[in-house]
Structures are given as structure tokens and as C-alpha cells.
Design a protein around this nucleic acid. Sequence first.
DNA 1: GTGGTCTAGACCACG
DNA 2: GTGGTCTAGACCACC
Lengths: 125, 125, 125, 125
Amino acid sequence: MISIDYRDRRSIYEQLVERITSLAASGFLSPGSQLPSVRQLASELSINPNTIQRAYAELERAGVTYTVKGRGSFVTEDTNLLRSKMQDELFADFNQSAHRAIEGGITATKLITSIEAIEKEARNQ
Amino acid sequence: MISIDYRDRRSIYEQLVERITSLAASGFLSPGSQLPSVRQLASELSINPNTIQRAYAELERAGVTYTVKGRGSFVTEDTNLLRSKMQDELFADFNQSAHRAIEGGITATKLITSIEAIEKEARNQ
Amino acid sequence: MISIDYRDRRSIYEQLVERITSLAASGFLSPGSQLPSVRQLASELSINPNTIQRAYAELERAGVTYTVKGRGSFVTEDTNLLRSKMQDELFADFNQSAHRAIEGGITATKLITSIEAIEKEARNQ
Amino acid sequence: MISIDYRDRRSIYEQLVERITSLAASGFLSPGSQLPSVRQLASELSINPNTIQRAYAELERAGVTYTVKGRGSFVTEDTNLLRSKMQDELFADFNQSAHRAIEGGITATKLITSIEAIEKEARNQ
DNA sequence: GTGGTCTAGACCACG
DNA sequence: GTGGTCTAGACCACC
């Protein structure tokens, strides 16, 4: 469910944060469920525990998880907030891309056609 | 016309490359026109000449500019190619953002509405 | 009457100690009354009995409770001492906060106004 | 100007964050001024550079500083925002302490007297 | 067993 | 030179 892409420009811990946030927001990790322990995930992915620790700390800071010392890290109960936050980010990112595309001379028609194709594909999946 | 955002996560030379490419593709820098010299731009922006040098080298490698020894760097004559390359990149970037937005549960309708708003705004400018 | 906040940075046993001390000092737990057994409180709060045990040990060490082997833990008879100890701690804590606030540039007037509001609210409750 | 208290319960990097934030908010570190480099501060305080790095990362995340790769970390230009943020925190902390003190049976009069003493002392310093 | 912190030492990109 | 990331290994408090 979690994997690292070493060709990705982003650092390992950033990839982990992005991936787990996404899983939690989309419901693949159900609210309240426990994440693998730092050491376990570290050995699964062949990564140093410190790196996992760093990602988990960032996740807690962002409100994606909460941590109980000595017990582990758990997905936040309030997934709705998470979901809406993430959608806000995605939408802002989309708008920026769209803005640049329009300014670069791509027609709105082309962009809309592309969106319709993407949406169709997603529905058929 | 060129400015550096120190809060930007990207490195300085990356910002320079992106900015100059964009200016050349959109015609704000006309084909064949001369870029400021490395030293001049460096002092204008209070940046290490090495950094400018690196950006100019990258621009030449990408075909945005060509260099004549002893004379300076010039915007490529073939702006059309540049323009289409840039549009390809912008479009690919847009598609990626759109894909993520759709997957994240944002409706296609919302995205399309947003695009229409952006396009309208650009036309009125 | 007793609950655990897993988001609290303090450890569980510290929260328990603080909470029970406060209840005893304020009279919500009357002098001489019996605390729930380690096992019972553990199952009520879904917490490891070791953790309760540790809290109870700490409470006895601090003079808040006394333990009779085979019978259980009881709130100390001398609640006055408890009450004054606790007030000392609260006052010291208050002074520290007030000191930092003043040093940080908040006016004494603002602090006093706030205290009056808090006091009024407490009286009306 | 910066020192570590090893008896403090807080971790080293937390102390650094708190201390530097405070210095920046109060103006002892002027806006735009450069912090010591990670390595330099590390050797000054006889602390591992990683620990300093962690504190600096946290400071940037909190908006206290901004970082230019290859050049260093600098105090944010907008110190006013910093100052008001910090006062908000101090005030919230003060209110919590005051609330607990009142609930614990300390009279408002005693608290107010204490504040006046603190304020007087601060003014005479 | 769990997470949290720290040290030591290395490598990278950037200026 | 600068900051950023990662590994390795250790120790702590807590459950």
C-alpha cells in the first residue's frame, strides 16, 4: 500500500507524508486505525527508522494522525476535515496549473475536453 | 522583468530558467534579442555570477537561447518550437493536476466552471 | 469523572495523578473515600493496569492517598494540606505565566480585566 | 544569547525554537538578520548539527525565519505578525493558568495583587 | 513492545 | 561555504 519511488525528486519522508495523507483522506486507511509501527514500516521498506519517524511526526503535526506514546500512531477520527483540506489543496493546485496553461496560450476548450476525458476514464474504472 | 522569490522552494537558477523560458516563449523577449550579460544580470539581481552562468547554460541546453563566444547569449530565432514545447509541458502539468483533483473527489463540473472563470478573466485583461 | 486526553502531550499516568489530586483537593473526592481498584479503573478507561498502578503509587508518594494492603487506596484525611499545596502550585504557575505575558509586552490592565472576567464567570456558575 | 538548559524537561530543539522565536519577536534579533549557520551554532553550543537543523526547520515552518539554500537562515521581515502571534499564545496561556487558579480557590484579589507586583518590577528594570 | 530524541558521520545540491 | 536528507546506532520514557 505504501511504496517509495527513488526517482522521485521529493525526499523519502515527503513521499511518505503525501502517500499516507492521501490514503487517510480517501478512506483506504479508516479513521482510528493504527499505522504500522515506526520500526516495522522501516524494515518493510528497507528505510532507516529515523526517516519514518520524521514522516510520522509531520503527519501528526498536520493533524492526519495522532500518537499515543508507547502505543503507536493512529489515523485521526475526523476524516471529513482531512478530506476537505486535501480537496482545497488539490483545487488550488489545479487552478494554478489552469491559470498558467491559459496564460501560455492553450485554449479553454482544449482544457475542458481533457477534463471530460479524465472524468470519463475515472468513472469507468 | 526578472525577479527572484527567495521563499520559492526552487533554486535560484531553476527560477531563472523557468522565467526566461516563459518570457521567450510568450514573445516578451523577441527572437534573436540579446540577454543581459552574466555579470550585468548578476549585479542587477545581487546574485552570484556562477548562478546566472548555470541558468544560461541550462537555457542553451534546452534550446531556448544560443551563445556566441565573446558576444553574449541570444534568444533562439525559432520561437514557435519553444512555444509548442512549453505548451506541451503546461498541458501535461495541467492534466496531472486535473487527474489528481478528479481522483480526490472534486467534480468535473467544478473544474470546468473554474476554467471558464479563469479564461474570462484572462480575456478581459 | 476521570478521563484521558490522548492528544495531551503529558503521559497517561501524569494526567491521572493531576486529575485525581485536583478532585481530592477540591473536595469532589471526599477525605477517606475509596478510589476505584486498579483493575476496575483500568478496564473503565481501557488502559493498562500497570499505568494505573504507577499513578496510584505516585499519588501515595505525594501524600494524596494512602494504601491499605488488601483493601485498596483511600483519599487522605488531611485535605487541607492537600488544598494548600495545590494552591501553591497553581499560584506559582500563574505567576510564571503572568511574568512571561508582561515581559512579552501585554499590559497589566489587560491581564487584570481578563482575571475579573474569569472570576465573574466562575461566581455565576 | 542562546543557551541550553539540560535540566529543562523540553527537548533541546524545542528550547532552541522557543528561544529564537522569542528573540525575534522581541526585536533582539532584527528582521532580516542572519542566524548563525547550522554548523557554527552547533559547535558553539556543543550540540549535534542535526539537532540545530531540526530547530531551524521548525522555525521556518512556523514562519519565524526563512531559508535560502546555500546562503543561510534569516529572521522574517514581518516581525509584527510574529509579535502578535506570540502575544496571543502568551495571553491564552495566562488565561488558562488564571482559570485553574480561580477554580482552585485562589481569590481574584490575590492574583491581581501579584500582577501589579510583577508589572512594577518589570517597569523598574 | 511503542514513539521521541540525540549523536556521529556521510552525501547531495546550491552559491 | 550553506542548508537538506539519510543511515546507523544509542538511550530514554512510557505502556
